[in-house]
Design a protein around this nucleic acid. Sequence first.
DNA 1: CCTAGATATTTTAAGCTTGAAATAATTCAG
DNA 2: CTGAATTATTTCAAGCTTAAAATATCTAGG
Lengths: 157, 157
Amino acid sequence: MVAARHATLAPQQGKERLRLWVRILRVSRLIEAELRDKLKTEFDTTLPRFDVMAALYREPDGMLMSDLSRYLLVSNGNVTGIIDRLVADGFVVRALREGDRRTSVVSLTKTGRTFFAKMAAVHEGWVNARFADIDEDEARELASVLQSFRSNWEAET
Amino acid sequence: MVAARHATLAPQQGKERLRLWVRILRVSRLIEAELRDKLKTEFDTTLPRFDVMAALYREPDGMLMSDLSRYLLVSNGNVTGIIDRLVADGFVVRALREGDRRTSVVSLTKTGRTFFAKMAAVHEGWVNARFADIDEDEARELASVLQSFRSNWEAET
DNA sequence: CCTAGATATTTTAAGCTTGAAATAATTCAG
DNA sequence: CTGAATTATTTCAAGCTTAAAATATCTAGG
């Protein structure tokens, strides 16, 4: 009987959580699409480039390629291509690290830092405007649920 | 004075909302990465293919290419390629529509429906397991915030 | 009828993305 | 010291993605 009750209840819960996931995904894609569009028209750049520059901006001493890909949740080979193009455009430099010739430390150039700082300010305005409908408490609450979600994830893995 | 107070308060709020966005994006990417990986190993397919099949599964009479791209929030040309491959694999058919030779109606084949149904059940289990930590009330609350967010968005646009 | 504009889709070029294989350098057990 | 395993990165092939240009078709105004 307990088993039977569980069997009728579980699918309901599953649906609720599946719905949550679909909505997270949808909102996330809507916003990503908007940001991509604005980055393109206002700064002639892309979201992946923005993400890479954001990561590097937080680490003035530079990052290893592998740190970068781990932090951004993308594959190694992916980062190589994006960095190649950022280097070609003069926003990023690769430096050899003394004592380990396998690794290279990438960091923003002065030009890159200046450019990113300008973008970041405008970008924050976009996000702020887009989330204007969500009040402070909701934002904090939601952020904390997501934060603990991620903590649990990382604890498991 | 009011202006000054606003000036010191606004950035704080901005940061809170920016943090929320970064966390939505991060959770979304974590889960997407996991689902992509599982779809690959268990069903030898991709997330975009799964998304397209999910959309078609809900519409047994088929969809226009433009409906599909609007629904999935991706570009027209994108859908063309994915459908091409699904057709090549026998999961989808393109049908000409009587009276308008510009459009083509795409729908799942019997094979496609069967295959998707199997995937969807397993997929729901993955999502359910992944969100197990989030309790029912939180899930409902979060889903409702996201839902109203999206409604506001669509009202504006 | 005819043609100008609108609509539906595909094609194209460039960039993003992955997973796997290849390259290169380091470390460490014997 | 040497070679096997490990680590860091790049290369590669296939697929995804976009925006813009090209095709093809349809609709309406004249």
